[in-house]
Amino acid sequence: MVKIKFIEHSGQEHDVETNPGASVMVAAVSNGVPGIDADCGGACSCATCHVYVDQEWLERTGEINPTEEAMLSLSTDRKDNSRLSCQIQVTEDLDGLVVTMPEFQF
């Protein structure tokens, strides 16, 4: 099992354990973590599963592909550590991952 910590904009923390293979978005939604809407269901086409990846984990979450970059670039809350959580694959390597949610998903 891989442990992921989701931190809401308010600071409220949610610790989740999940199997490798699914996406970070699925890990959040299937464990009832609030603050991830995932309107498109994981197709990288709505930007409502936006998270900020803790700096020390950023590199290990992989490259941003052009589609994800295009969706993120339209977000009003884009930061340099922004990712769409549906595009981050959960691997053993991400055990202990920490991500923070923006105030709003849009």
């Binding site: 809407d37 995932a38 309107d39 498109c40 269901g41 197709a43 086409s45 709505c46 969706m71």
Partner: peptide
Amino acid sequence: RQHLSFGFGL
């Protein structure tokens, strides 16, 4: 929320 009414993508 997973409806098409708002469209998807850019």
